[in-house]
Design a protein around this nucleic acid. Structure first.
Length: 567
RNA sequence: UGGGGUGUAGCCAAGCGGUAAGGCAGCGGCCUUUGGAGCCGCCAUUCCCAGGUUCGAAUCCUGGCACCCCAGCCA
Protein backbone atom coordinates (compact mmCIF):
# COMPACT_ATOMS: atom_id res chain seq x y z
CA UNK A 1 0.00 0.00 0.00
CA UNK A 2 2.70 2.42 0.93
CA UNK A 3 4.65 1.72 -2.21
CA UNK A 4 1.83 2.87 -4.46
CA UNK A 5 1.50 6.03 -2.45
CA UNK A 6 4.87 7.05 -3.80
CA UNK A 7 3.47 7.74 -7.23
CA UNK A 8 3.23 11.33 -8.35
CA UNK A 9 -0.51 11.01 -8.06
CA UNK A 10 -0.33 9.96 -4.46
CA UNK A 11 1.85 12.91 -3.68
CA UNK A 12 -0.48 15.35 -5.29
CA UNK A 13 -3.53 13.93 -3.59
CA UNK A 14 -2.27 15.42 -0.36
CA UNK A 15 -2.15 12.10 1.46
CA UNK A 16 1.57 12.41 1.98
CA UNK A 17 3.31 9.09 1.70
CA UNK A 18 5.76 8.29 4.46
CA UNK A 19 9.24 8.12 3.14
CA UNK A 20 11.08 4.84 3.14
CA UNK A 21 13.69 4.22 5.80
CA UNK A 22 15.42 1.33 7.47
CA UNK A 23 13.44 1.57 10.71
CA UNK A 24 10.20 1.13 8.81
CA UNK A 25 11.76 -1.76 6.93
CA UNK A 26 12.75 -3.49 10.15
CA UNK A 27 9.40 -2.97 11.82
CA UNK A 28 7.48 -4.14 8.80
CA UNK A 29 9.66 -7.20 8.54
CA UNK A 30 9.13 -7.97 12.25
CA UNK A 31 5.41 -7.51 11.82
CA UNK A 32 5.44 -9.82 8.82
CA UNK A 33 7.33 -12.57 10.62
CA UNK A 34 5.45 -12.09 13.86
CA UNK A 35 8.68 -11.58 15.77
CA UNK A 36 6.96 -9.89 18.71
CA UNK A 37 3.52 -11.30 18.17
CA UNK A 38 2.58 -8.34 16.03
CA UNK A 39 3.47 -5.86 18.75
CA UNK A 40 5.26 -2.56 18.20
CA UNK A 41 6.25 -0.94 21.47
CA UNK A 42 8.78 1.87 21.60
CA UNK A 43 9.83 4.36 24.20
CA UNK A 44 11.33 7.82 24.38
CA UNK A 45 13.88 7.75 27.23
CA UNK A 46 15.23 11.23 28.05
CA UNK A 47 17.43 12.01 31.02
CA UNK A 48 15.88 14.94 32.91
CA UNK A 49 19.09 16.93 32.97
CA UNK A 50 18.19 19.65 30.48
CA UNK A 51 15.56 20.83 28.06
CA UNK A 52 14.68 18.91 24.95
CA UNK A 53 16.01 20.16 21.62
CA UNK A 54 15.21 19.64 17.95
CA UNK A 55 17.42 16.55 17.93
CA UNK A 56 15.20 15.02 20.59
CA UNK A 57 12.23 16.01 18.48
CA UNK A 58 13.56 13.75 15.76
CA UNK A 59 13.73 10.89 18.25
CA UNK A 60 10.29 11.68 19.66
CA UNK A 61 8.75 11.74 16.19
CA UNK A 62 10.46 8.46 15.41
CA UNK A 63 9.44 6.66 18.59
CA UNK A 64 5.94 8.00 19.03
CA UNK A 65 5.36 8.35 15.31
CA UNK A 66 6.39 4.83 14.38
CA UNK A 67 4.35 3.34 17.23
CA UNK A 68 1.30 5.25 16.09
CA UNK A 69 1.87 4.39 12.47
CA UNK A 70 2.00 0.67 13.16
CA UNK A 71 -0.73 0.55 15.75
CA UNK A 72 1.67 0.20 18.66
CA UNK A 73 2.48 2.03 21.86
CA UNK A 74 5.19 4.39 22.98
CA UNK A 75 6.20 5.00 26.59
CA UNK A 76 7.73 8.09 28.05
CA UNK A 77 10.45 6.99 30.42
CA UNK A 78 12.82 9.21 32.32
CA UNK A 79 16.29 7.75 32.58
CA UNK A 80 16.90 9.26 35.98
CA UNK A 81 19.85 7.28 37.22
CA UNK A 82 22.11 10.19 38.08
CA UNK A 83 20.71 12.30 40.94
CA UNK A 84 23.55 14.79 40.74
CA UNK A 85 22.44 16.15 37.39
CA UNK A 86 18.72 15.71 37.29
CA UNK A 87 15.93 18.03 38.34
CA UNK A 88 12.18 18.15 38.56
CA UNK A 89 12.13 21.30 36.43
CA UNK A 90 13.45 19.23 33.56
CA UNK A 91 10.96 16.40 33.92
CA UNK A 92 8.20 18.99 33.80
CA UNK A 93 9.50 20.73 30.72
CA UNK A 94 10.11 17.46 28.92
CA UNK A 95 6.53 16.35 29.41
CA UNK A 96 5.27 19.71 28.26
CA UNK A 97 7.41 19.58 25.14
CA UNK A 98 6.43 16.04 24.15
CA UNK A 99 2.77 16.91 24.57
CA UNK A 100 3.15 20.14 22.66
CA UNK A 101 4.72 18.24 19.80
CA UNK A 102 1.46 16.33 19.64
CA UNK A 103 2.26 13.01 21.26
CA UNK A 104 0.60 11.13 24.09
CA UNK A 105 2.04 8.47 26.38
CA UNK A 106 -1.36 7.96 27.99
CA UNK A 107 -0.83 6.12 31.27
CA UNK A 108 2.66 4.98 30.36
CA UNK A 109 4.80 7.49 32.17
CA UNK A 110 7.75 5.66 33.69
CA UNK A 111 11.00 6.37 35.46
CA UNK A 112 14.11 4.24 35.63
CA UNK A 113 13.97 5.09 39.34
CA UNK A 114 10.73 3.08 39.52
CA UNK A 115 12.90 0.07 38.78
CA UNK A 116 15.66 0.64 41.34
CA UNK A 117 14.48 -2.19 43.59
CA UNK A 118 14.09 -4.65 40.71
CA UNK A 119 17.46 -3.61 39.30
CA UNK A 120 18.99 -4.28 42.70
CA UNK A 121 17.46 -7.74 42.70
CA UNK A 122 18.81 -8.39 39.23
CA UNK A 123 22.25 -7.32 40.41
CA UNK A 124 22.06 -9.77 43.28
CA UNK A 125 21.20 -12.49 40.78
CA UNK A 126 24.30 -11.72 38.76
CA UNK A 127 26.44 -11.73 41.89
CA UNK A 128 25.05 -15.13 42.80
CA UNK A 129 25.92 -16.39 39.32
CA UNK A 130 29.44 -15.14 39.81
CA UNK A 131 28.86 -12.58 37.07
CA UNK A 132 29.26 -9.45 39.16
CA UNK A 133 31.55 -8.38 41.95
CA UNK A 134 32.21 -5.56 44.35
CA UNK A 135 35.40 -3.76 43.42
CA UNK A 136 37.43 -1.54 45.75
CA UNK A 137 39.46 0.12 43.04
CA UNK A 138 39.25 3.91 42.85
CA UNK A 139 38.00 5.64 39.72
CA UNK A 140 41.58 6.36 38.67
CA UNK A 141 42.63 2.80 39.28
CA UNK A 142 39.73 1.44 37.30
CA UNK A 143 40.80 3.61 34.41
CA UNK A 144 44.36 2.32 34.61
CA UNK A 145 43.20 -1.26 34.80
CA UNK A 146 40.91 -0.80 31.82
CA UNK A 147 43.81 -0.72 29.36
CA UNK A 148 43.66 1.29 26.18
CA UNK A 149 42.10 1.06 22.76
CA UNK A 150 44.90 -1.18 21.57
CA UNK A 151 46.01 -2.88 24.77
CA UNK A 152 43.95 -5.25 26.92
CA UNK A 153 43.09 -4.35 30.48
CA UNK A 154 44.14 -6.06 33.71
CA UNK A 155 41.82 -7.88 36.02
CA UNK A 156 40.92 -6.16 39.25
CA UNK A 157 42.47 -7.76 42.36
CA UNK A 158 38.91 -7.87 43.76
CA UNK A 159 37.53 -9.75 40.80
CA UNK A 160 37.57 -13.13 42.46
CA UNK A 161 35.87 -12.39 45.75
CA UNK A 162 33.48 -15.04 46.93
CA UNK A 163 29.80 -14.77 46.20
CA UNK A 164 29.16 -14.44 49.92
CA UNK A 165 31.58 -11.58 50.33
CA UNK A 166 30.20 -9.83 47.27
CA UNK A 167 26.65 -10.23 48.54
CA UNK A 168 27.61 -8.86 51.92
CA UNK A 169 29.58 -5.94 50.54
CA UNK A 170 26.87 -5.04 48.04
CA UNK A 171 24.26 -5.09 50.82
CA UNK A 172 26.45 -2.81 52.89
CA UNK A 173 26.99 -0.49 49.95
CA UNK A 174 23.24 -0.09 49.80
CA UNK A 175 23.07 0.34 53.56
CA UNK A 176 25.30 3.36 53.33
CA UNK A 177 28.34 2.00 55.10
CA UNK A 178 30.81 3.38 52.58
CA UNK A 179 31.63 6.85 51.30
CA UNK A 180 31.20 8.01 47.72
CA UNK A 181 33.53 6.29 45.33
CA UNK A 182 34.80 3.75 47.84
CA UNK A 183 33.48 0.76 45.94
CA UNK A 184 31.53 -0.17 42.87
CA UNK A 185 29.63 -3.17 41.68
CA UNK A 186 31.07 -4.38 38.40
CA UNK A 187 29.99 -6.89 35.82
CA UNK A 188 32.46 -9.74 35.48
CA UNK A 189 32.94 -10.07 31.76
CA UNK A 190 36.26 -9.80 29.95
CA UNK A 191 39.09 -7.39 30.66
CA UNK A 192 40.70 -8.13 27.31
CA UNK A 193 37.64 -7.54 25.17
CA UNK A 194 38.33 -5.29 22.18
CA UNK A 195 35.06 -3.62 23.11
CA UNK A 196 35.91 -1.49 26.13
CA UNK A 197 32.32 -1.60 27.28
CA UNK A 198 32.81 -5.25 28.10
CA UNK A 199 35.87 -4.73 30.32
CA UNK A 200 34.03 -5.24 33.59
CA UNK A 201 31.81 -2.15 33.41
CA UNK A 202 30.53 -0.48 36.53
CA UNK A 203 26.91 -1.30 37.38
CA UNK A 204 26.54 0.60 40.64
CA UNK A 205 28.33 3.52 42.15
CA UNK A 206 28.00 4.96 45.63
CA UNK A 207 26.41 8.39 45.52
CA UNK A 208 25.19 9.90 48.75
CA UNK A 209 22.91 12.26 46.92
CA UNK A 210 19.23 13.12 47.13
CA UNK A 211 17.32 11.92 44.12
CA UNK A 212 14.54 14.12 42.78
CA UNK A 213 12.06 11.27 43.10
CA UNK A 214 13.42 8.66 45.48
CA UNK A 215 14.85 11.18 47.89
CA UNK A 216 17.37 9.58 50.25
CA UNK A 217 16.11 6.04 49.86
CA UNK A 218 19.20 5.08 47.92
CA UNK A 219 22.88 5.87 48.18
CA UNK A 220 23.90 3.53 45.39
CA UNK A 221 22.70 4.26 41.90
CA UNK A 222 22.70 2.09 38.79
CA UNK A 223 24.69 3.31 35.83
CA UNK A 224 22.83 3.98 32.61
CA UNK A 225 24.42 0.93 31.03
CA UNK A 226 23.08 -1.28 33.76
CA UNK A 227 19.65 0.30 33.93
CA UNK A 228 18.73 0.92 30.35
CA UNK A 229 18.44 -2.52 28.82
CA UNK A 230 16.61 -3.96 31.81
CA UNK A 231 14.20 -1.02 31.85
CA UNK A 232 13.37 -1.66 28.21
CA UNK A 233 12.97 -5.32 29.00
CA UNK A 234 10.62 -4.71 31.91
CA UNK A 235 8.46 -2.48 29.76
CA UNK A 236 8.28 -5.07 27.00
CA UNK A 237 9.82 -2.75 24.46
CA UNK A 238 10.10 -4.32 21.01
CA UNK A 239 12.20 -1.75 19.17
CA UNK A 240 14.64 0.13 21.36
CA UNK A 241 15.64 3.00 19.13
CA UNK A 242 18.70 5.01 20.12
CA UNK A 243 21.56 6.97 18.63
CA UNK A 244 24.70 5.58 17.00
CA UNK A 245 27.08 6.04 19.91
CA UNK A 246 25.25 3.26 21.75
CA UNK A 247 25.95 0.65 19.12
CA UNK A 248 29.13 -0.28 21.01
CA UNK A 249 27.07 -0.81 24.13
CA UNK A 250 24.64 -3.21 22.54
CA UNK A 251 26.81 -6.29 23.22
CA UNK A 252 26.85 -5.29 26.89
CA UNK A 253 23.08 -4.89 27.02
CA UNK A 254 22.72 -8.22 25.30
CA UNK A 255 25.05 -9.80 27.83
CA UNK A 256 23.05 -8.49 30.80
CA UNK A 257 19.75 -9.62 29.33
CA UNK A 258 21.06 -13.03 28.42
CA UNK A 259 22.72 -13.62 31.81
CA UNK A 260 19.50 -12.59 33.50
CA UNK A 261 17.47 -14.67 31.09
CA UNK A 262 14.78 -12.04 30.67
CA UNK A 263 12.82 -10.63 27.74
CA UNK A 264 15.11 -9.24 25.09
CA UNK A 265 14.15 -6.12 23.14
CA UNK A 266 16.09 -5.29 19.98
CA UNK A 267 18.15 -2.15 19.92
CA UNK A 268 18.42 -0.22 16.67
CA UNK A 269 20.70 2.77 16.29
CA UNK A 270 20.26 5.81 14.04
CA UNK A 271 22.32 8.93 13.39
CA UNK A 272 21.54 11.87 15.62
CA UNK A 273 20.51 15.17 14.09
CA UNK A 274 22.93 18.02 13.59
CA UNK A 275 21.83 21.40 12.27
CA UNK A 276 23.93 24.13 10.75
CA UNK A 277 24.48 27.38 12.66
CA UNK A 278 23.64 25.92 16.04
CA UNK A 279 24.85 23.53 18.69
CA UNK A 280 22.97 20.51 19.85
CA UNK A 281 24.72 19.10 22.88
CA UNK A 282 22.94 19.55 26.18
CA UNK A 283 26.24 20.47 27.76
CA UNK A 284 26.73 23.38 25.39
CA UNK A 285 23.12 24.47 25.59
CA UNK A 286 23.38 24.46 29.37
CA UNK A 287 26.48 26.60 29.09
CA UNK A 288 24.73 29.12 26.84
CA UNK A 289 22.01 29.42 29.45
CA UNK A 290 24.24 29.56 32.51
CA UNK A 291 26.66 32.03 31.01
CA UNK A 292 23.77 34.18 29.84
CA UNK A 293 24.61 34.13 26.18
CA UNK A 294 20.90 33.61 25.77
CA UNK A 295 17.91 34.40 27.87
CA UNK A 296 17.16 30.93 29.19
CA UNK A 297 16.31 27.54 27.79
CA UNK A 298 13.36 28.94 25.89
CA UNK A 299 15.19 31.84 24.32
CA UNK A 300 13.88 31.97 20.74
CA UNK A 301 17.40 31.57 19.42
CA UNK A 302 17.84 28.23 21.12
CA UNK A 303 17.31 24.99 19.16
CA UNK A 304 15.31 23.72 22.11
CA UNK A 305 11.69 22.72 21.64
CA UNK A 306 10.68 25.46 24.06
CA UNK A 307 12.85 27.96 22.21
CA UNK A 308 11.36 27.03 18.87
CA UNK A 309 7.90 27.25 20.39
CA UNK A 310 8.59 30.72 21.71
CA UNK A 311 10.10 31.62 18.37
CA UNK A 312 6.79 30.76 16.72
CA UNK A 313 7.43 27.33 15.25
CA UNK A 314 4.41 25.05 15.11
CA UNK A 315 4.41 21.40 16.20
CA UNK A 316 3.25 20.52 12.70
CA UNK A 317 6.26 22.17 11.12
CA UNK A 318 8.64 20.31 13.40
CA UNK A 319 6.98 17.00 12.71
CA UNK A 320 7.15 17.72 9.00
CA UNK A 321 10.82 18.53 9.38
CA UNK A 322 11.44 15.24 11.13
CA UNK A 323 9.76 13.43 8.27
CA UNK A 324 11.62 15.36 5.57
CA UNK A 325 15.11 14.79 6.92
CA UNK A 326 14.54 11.07 7.10
CA UNK A 327 16.58 8.74 9.25
CA UNK A 328 19.69 6.78 8.46
CA UNK A 329 22.91 5.61 10.00
CA UNK A 330 25.21 8.13 8.35
CA UNK A 331 26.40 11.25 10.13
CA UNK A 332 24.61 14.26 8.78
CA UNK A 333 24.22 17.95 9.32
CA UNK A 334 20.98 19.30 8.01
CA UNK A 335 20.86 22.78 6.56
CA UNK A 336 18.97 25.20 8.81
CA UNK A 337 17.28 26.42 5.62
CA UNK A 338 15.41 23.14 5.53
CA UNK A 339 13.89 23.75 8.97
CA UNK A 340 13.03 27.28 7.94
CA UNK A 341 11.33 26.05 4.84
CA UNK A 342 9.11 23.83 6.98
CA UNK A 343 7.86 26.67 9.12
CA UNK A 344 7.35 28.99 6.16
CA UNK A 345 5.43 26.30 4.39
CA UNK A 346 3.17 25.72 7.36
CA UNK A 347 2.63 29.36 8.29
CA UNK A 348 2.03 30.37 4.70
CA UNK A 349 -1.10 28.26 4.78
CA UNK A 350 -2.30 29.24 8.23
CA UNK A 351 -0.99 32.59 9.36
CA UNK A 352 -3.23 35.60 9.19
CA UNK A 353 -1.74 38.45 7.17
CA UNK A 354 -1.41 41.79 8.81
CA UNK A 355 0.44 45.04 8.11
CA UNK A 356 3.23 46.15 10.41
CA UNK A 357 5.92 48.73 9.87
CA UNK A 358 9.10 47.79 11.66
CA UNK A 359 11.24 50.86 10.93
CA UNK A 360 8.69 53.62 10.38
CA UNK A 361 9.06 56.52 8.00
CA UNK A 362 6.27 59.10 8.16
CA UNK A 363 4.44 59.88 4.94
CA UNK A 364 2.01 62.76 4.52
CA UNK A 365 -0.38 62.45 1.61
CA UNK A 366 -0.85 66.08 0.79
CA UNK A 367 -3.93 65.85 -1.38
CA UNK A 368 -5.79 63.51 0.95
CA UNK A 369 -8.49 65.33 2.94
CA UNK A 370 -7.63 66.23 6.52
CA UNK A 371 -9.48 64.14 9.03
CA UNK A 372 -10.82 61.69 6.50
CA UNK A 373 -10.61 57.98 7.35
CA UNK A 374 -11.43 55.14 5.00
CA UNK A 375 -11.93 51.57 6.13
CA UNK A 376 -10.33 49.46 3.45
CA UNK A 377 -10.87 45.75 2.89
CA UNK A 378 -7.86 43.53 3.41
CA UNK A 379 -7.59 39.81 2.78
CA UNK A 380 -6.66 37.78 5.84
CA UNK A 381 -4.98 34.99 3.94
CA UNK A 382 -4.75 34.70 0.17
CA UNK A 383 -4.06 30.99 0.60
CA UNK A 384 -7.28 30.40 2.49
CA UNK A 385 -10.42 32.31 1.54
CA UNK A 386 -12.24 30.93 4.56
CA UNK A 387 -10.16 33.16 6.78
CA UNK A 388 -12.12 36.12 5.41
CA UNK A 389 -11.29 39.79 5.29
CA UNK A 390 -10.88 42.64 7.72
CA UNK A 391 -11.06 46.43 7.65
CA UNK A 392 -7.89 48.50 7.78
CA UNK A 393 -8.10 52.25 8.42
CA UNK A 394 -6.43 54.63 5.97
CA UNK A 395 -5.76 58.32 6.52
CA UNK A 396 -3.69 61.30 5.46
CA UNK A 397 -0.66 60.40 7.51
CA UNK A 398 0.79 56.94 7.34
CA UNK A 399 3.99 55.07 8.10
CA UNK A 400 5.89 53.05 5.58
CA UNK A 401 9.02 50.96 5.95
CA UNK A 402 12.19 53.09 5.74
CA UNK A 403 13.62 50.46 3.50
CA UNK A 404 10.78 51.00 1.03
CA UNK A 405 12.12 54.41 0.11
CA UNK A 406 15.40 55.21 -1.61
CA UNK A 407 16.42 58.69 -2.41
CA UNK A 408 18.77 57.27 -4.95
CA UNK A 409 17.15 54.02 -6.12
CA UNK A 410 19.29 51.25 -7.54
CA UNK A 411 18.33 49.52 -10.77
CA UNK A 412 15.20 47.40 -10.58
CA UNK A 413 14.13 48.98 -7.31
CA UNK A 414 10.36 48.92 -7.53
CA UNK A 415 9.52 50.85 -4.41
CA UNK A 416 9.26 54.55 -3.57
CA UNK A 417 11.77 57.16 -4.60
CA UNK A 418 11.54 60.85 -5.47
CA UNK A 419 9.06 61.24 -8.30
CA UNK A 420 8.28 57.54 -8.39
CA UNK A 421 4.97 55.81 -7.84
CA UNK A 422 4.15 52.81 -5.74
CA UNK A 423 0.97 51.04 -4.72
CA UNK A 424 -0.04 51.06 -1.07
CA UNK A 425 -1.38 47.61 -0.41
CA UNK A 426 -5.19 47.58 -0.35
CA UNK A 427 -5.19 51.36 -0.85
CA UNK A 428 -3.99 53.83 -3.47
CA UNK A 429 -1.12 54.53 -5.74
CA UNK A 430 0.98 57.34 -4.35
CA UNK A 431 3.77 59.43 -5.78
CA UNK A 432 6.63 60.90 -3.83
CA UNK A 433 6.84 64.64 -4.31
CA UNK A 434 9.22 65.76 -1.62
CA UNK A 435 11.72 64.49 0.90
CA UNK A 436 11.96 66.23 4.25
CA UNK A 437 15.26 65.97 6.07
CA UNK A 438 16.53 66.90 9.46
CA UNK A 439 18.53 70.07 8.94
CA UNK A 440 21.34 69.05 11.19
CA UNK A 441 21.75 65.35 10.54
CA UNK A 442 20.47 65.11 7.01
CA UNK A 443 18.38 62.16 8.04
CA UNK A 444 15.15 61.68 6.13
CA UNK A 445 12.36 62.36 8.57
CA UNK A 446 9.30 62.55 6.36
CA UNK A 447 8.02 62.07 2.85
CA UNK A 448 5.44 64.22 1.12
CA UNK A 449 3.33 62.36 -1.38
CA UNK A 450 0.18 62.72 -3.46
CA UNK A 451 -2.30 59.97 -4.10
CA UNK A 452 -4.41 59.15 -7.11
CA UNK A 453 -8.03 58.80 -5.94
CA UNK A 454 -8.87 56.78 -9.05
CA UNK A 455 -6.66 53.92 -7.99
CA UNK A 456 -8.41 52.80 -4.85
CA UNK A 457 -7.97 49.11 -4.31
CA UNK A 458 -10.87 47.00 -5.46
CA UNK A 459 -12.29 49.66 -7.75
CA UNK A 460 -12.27 49.01 -11.47
CA UNK A 461 -8.61 49.75 -11.41
CA UNK A 462 -7.58 48.13 -14.69
CA UNK A 463 -6.50 51.63 -15.56
CA UNK A 464 -3.09 51.79 -13.99
CA UNK A 465 -0.46 49.46 -12.81
CA UNK A 466 2.75 50.04 -10.94
CA UNK A 467 5.57 47.66 -10.39
CA UNK A 468 5.76 47.81 -6.62
CA UNK A 469 3.38 47.38 -3.73
CA UNK A 470 4.36 48.30 -0.21
CA UNK A 471 2.72 47.93 3.16
CA UNK A 472 1.81 50.78 5.49
CA UNK A 473 0.00 51.64 8.71
CA UNK A 474 -2.23 54.65 9.31
CA UNK A 475 -0.39 56.87 11.79
CA UNK A 476 -3.31 57.96 13.98
CA UNK A 477 -4.55 54.39 14.19
CA UNK A 478 -1.24 52.65 14.61
CA UNK A 479 -0.41 50.61 17.67
CA UNK A 480 3.09 50.71 19.04
CA UNK A 481 4.92 47.46 19.33
CA UNK A 482 8.26 46.01 20.21
CA UNK A 483 9.63 43.55 17.72
CA UNK A 484 12.49 41.15 18.37
CA UNK A 485 14.37 40.21 15.24
CA UNK A 486 16.14 36.92 15.68
CA UNK A 487 18.91 35.62 13.53
CA UNK A 488 21.08 32.53 13.69
CA UNK A 489 22.86 32.00 17.00
CA UNK A 490 26.24 31.31 15.41
CA UNK A 491 28.13 32.96 12.60
CA UNK A 492 29.47 29.75 11.11
CA UNK A 493 27.76 26.62 9.86
CA UNK A 494 29.70 24.37 12.16
CA UNK A 495 30.46 25.98 15.52
CA UNK A 496 32.36 23.02 16.92
CA UNK A 497 35.74 22.79 18.55
CA UNK A 498 37.02 24.25 21.79
CA UNK A 499 36.46 27.82 20.64
CA UNK A 500 32.83 27.24 19.67
CA UNK A 501 31.71 30.16 21.80
CA UNK A 502 33.79 32.56 19.75
CA UNK A 503 31.35 31.92 16.92
CA UNK A 504 28.35 33.19 18.80
CA UNK A 505 26.61 35.73 16.58
CA UNK A 506 26.74 39.11 18.35
CA UNK A 507 23.79 40.23 16.24
CA UNK A 508 21.50 37.30 16.81
CA UNK A 509 18.94 39.60 18.38
CA UNK A 510 17.95 43.03 17.15
CA UNK A 511 15.45 44.88 19.27
CA UNK A 512 13.04 47.26 17.55
CA UNK A 513 11.06 49.32 20.02
CA UNK A 514 9.27 51.76 17.79
CA UNK A 515 7.27 49.58 15.45
CA UNK A 516 3.84 50.51 14.17
CA UNK A 517 1.27 47.81 13.67
CA UNK A 518 -2.30 47.86 12.40
CA UNK A 519 -5.05 48.20 15.03
CA UNK A 520 -6.46 44.71 14.51
CA UNK A 521 -3.50 43.43 16.50
CA UNK A 522 -4.79 45.01 19.69
CA UNK A 523 -6.27 41.73 20.87
CA UNK A 524 -3.42 39.45 19.89
CA UNK A 525 -2.50 36.95 22.58
CA UNK A 526 0.73 35.18 23.42
CA UNK A 527 1.74 32.61 20.81
CA UNK A 528 -0.63 34.01 18.14
CA UNK A 529 1.14 33.85 14.81
CA UNK A 530 0.95 36.34 11.96
CA UNK A 531 2.53 37.13 8.71
CA UNK A 532 3.61 40.77 8.67
CA UNK A 533 3.19 41.29 4.95
CA UNK A 534 6.46 41.42 3.07
CA UNK A 535 8.43 41.12 6.31
CA UNK A 536 8.09 37.62 7.64
CA UNK A 537 6.27 35.52 10.18
CA UNK A 538 5.97 36.77 13.72
CA UNK A 539 4.42 35.49 16.90
CA UNK A 540 3.30 37.22 20.05
CA UNK A 541 5.81 36.74 22.84
CA UNK A 542 4.89 35.73 26.37
CA UNK A 543 6.15 39.16 27.47
CA UNK A 544 3.45 40.88 25.45
CA UNK A 545 0.70 42.85 27.23
CA UNK A 546 -2.25 44.93 26.05
CA UNK A 547 -0.29 48.15 26.30
CA UNK A 548 3.04 46.78 25.31
CA UNK A 549 2.81 44.42 22.37
CA UNK A 550 5.85 42.24 21.80
CA UNK A 551 6.45 40.15 18.70
CA UNK A 552 9.17 37.66 17.88
CA UNK A 553 10.25 37.17 14.33
CA UNK A 554 9.98 33.48 13.57
CA UNK A 555 11.49 33.65 10.11
CA UNK A 556 11.69 36.15 7.29
CA UNK A 557 9.82 35.71 4.06
CA UNK A 558 11.87 34.52 1.13
CA UNK A 559 13.43 37.69 -0.20
CA UNK A 560 14.42 37.62 -3.85
CA UNK A 561 15.06 41.34 -3.80
CA UNK A 562 17.71 40.90 -1.14
CA UNK A 563 19.41 38.42 -3.44
CA UNK A 564 19.24 40.76 -6.41
CA UNK A 565 20.64 43.61 -4.40
CA UNK A 566 23.45 41.53 -3.02
CA UNK A 567 24.71 40.63 -6.47
C1' U B 1 48.71 -1.24 15.20
C1' G B 2 41.98 -2.73 18.83
C1' G B 3 36.65 -2.60 18.27
C1' G B 4 32.10 -0.48 16.24
C1' G B 5 29.97 2.54 12.30
C1' U B 6 29.47 5.46 7.66
C1' G B 7 30.80 7.03 2.43
C1' U B 8 25.03 8.46 -3.62
C1' A B 9 24.64 16.37 -6.02
C1' G B 10 26.25 22.26 -2.00
C1' C B 11 22.89 19.82 2.33
C1' C B 12 19.52 15.68 3.63
C1' A B 13 18.08 11.03 1.28
C1' A B 14 15.73 6.78 -1.80
C1' G B 15 17.86 2.78 -4.18
C1' C B 16 18.49 -4.13 -2.14
C1' G B 17 21.67 -7.17 -10.11
C1' G B 18 17.99 -4.40 -15.13
C1' U B 19 20.38 1.12 -16.62
C1' A B 20 20.49 7.18 -10.43
C1' A B 21 13.36 8.82 -6.64
C1' G B 22 12.14 12.96 -3.66
C1' G B 23 13.06 17.32 -0.50
C1' C B 24 16.16 21.69 0.78
C1' A B 25 19.51 25.10 -1.51
C1' G B 26 20.73 27.18 -6.35
C1' C B 27 19.59 28.80 -11.44
C1' G B 28 16.11 30.32 -15.53
C1' G B 29 10.95 31.58 -16.96
C1' C B 30 5.54 32.45 -16.13
C1' C B 31 2.18 34.70 -12.88
C1' U B 32 1.28 38.16 -8.95
C1' U B 33 -1.95 44.66 -5.47
C1' U B 34 3.13 40.57 -0.46
C1' G B 35 10.08 41.22 -4.87
C1' G B 36 5.42 36.31 -0.54
C1' A B 37 2.65 32.21 -2.42
C1' G B 38 1.80 29.35 -6.80
C1' C B 39 3.20 27.24 -11.61
C1' C B 40 6.86 25.48 -15.43
C1' G B 41 11.81 24.14 -16.53
C1' C B 42 17.18 23.19 -15.35
C1' C B 43 20.41 21.04 -11.66
C1' A B 44 24.76 13.14 -10.58
C1' U B 45 26.26 9.64 -18.19
C1' U B 46 27.39 8.36 -12.40
C1' C B 47 27.25 6.52 -6.75
C1' C B 48 34.86 7.38 -1.98
C1' C B 49 39.01 4.91 -5.05
C1' A B 50 41.16 0.58 -7.69
C1' G B 51 40.57 -4.11 -9.48
C1' G B 52 37.26 -8.41 -10.26
C1' U B 53 32.45 -11.31 -11.25
C1' U B 54 28.28 -10.57 -14.78
C1' C B 55 24.98 -9.77 -21.01
C1' G B 56 24.30 -5.98 -17.26
C1' A B 57 27.07 -3.36 -10.87
C1' A B 58 25.55 2.38 -6.75
C1' U B 59 23.89 -2.66 -5.62
C1' C B 60 27.92 -8.90 -5.49
C1' C B 61 33.52 -10.09 -4.47
C1' U B 62 38.69 -8.43 -3.28
C1' G B 63 41.95 -4.67 -1.83
C1' G B 64 42.58 0.26 -0.51
C1' C B 65 41.25 5.37 1.22
C1' A B 66 38.48 8.97 4.11
C1' C B 67 35.45 10.40 8.07
C1' C B 68 32.65 9.49 12.86
C1' C B 69 32.19 6.88 17.75
C1' C B 70 34.50 4.10 22.14
C1' A B 71 39.69 4.29 27.22
C1' G B 72 32.99 8.51 32.79
C1' C B 73 31.81 5.56 39.03
C1' C B 74 27.73 10.77 32.31
C1' A B 75 23.63 9.49 29.40
Amino acid sequence: MKAEANSAEGTKAGAKPERRHFLRDIIEEDLRTGKYGGRVHTRFPPEPNGYLHIGHAKSICLNFGLAKEYGGLCNLRFDDTNPTKEEMEYVKSIQEDVRWLGFDWEDRLYYASDYFEQLYEYAVQLIKKGKAYVCDLSADEIREYRGTLTEPGKESPYRNRSVEENLDLFRRMRAGEFPNGARTLRARIDMSSPNLNLRDPVMYRILHATHHRTGDTWCIYPTYDWAHGQSDSMEGITHSICTLEFADHRPLYDWFLDELGIYHPQQIEFARLNLTYTVMSKRKLLQLVEEKHVDGWDDPRMPTISGLRRRGYTPESIREFAERIGVSRSESTVDMASLEDCIRDDLNKRAQRVMAVLRPLKVVIENYPDGMVEELDAVNNPEDASMGTRKVPFSKVIYIERDDFREDPPKKYFRLSPGAEVRLRYAYIIKCTDVVKDEKTGEIVELRCTYDPETRSGSQQRSRRVKGTIHWVSAPHALNAEVRLYDRLFTVEDPSGDDWKSFINPNSLELLRNCKVEPSLATAKAQDRFQFERMGYFCVDYDSTADHLVFNRTVTLRDTWAKIEKS
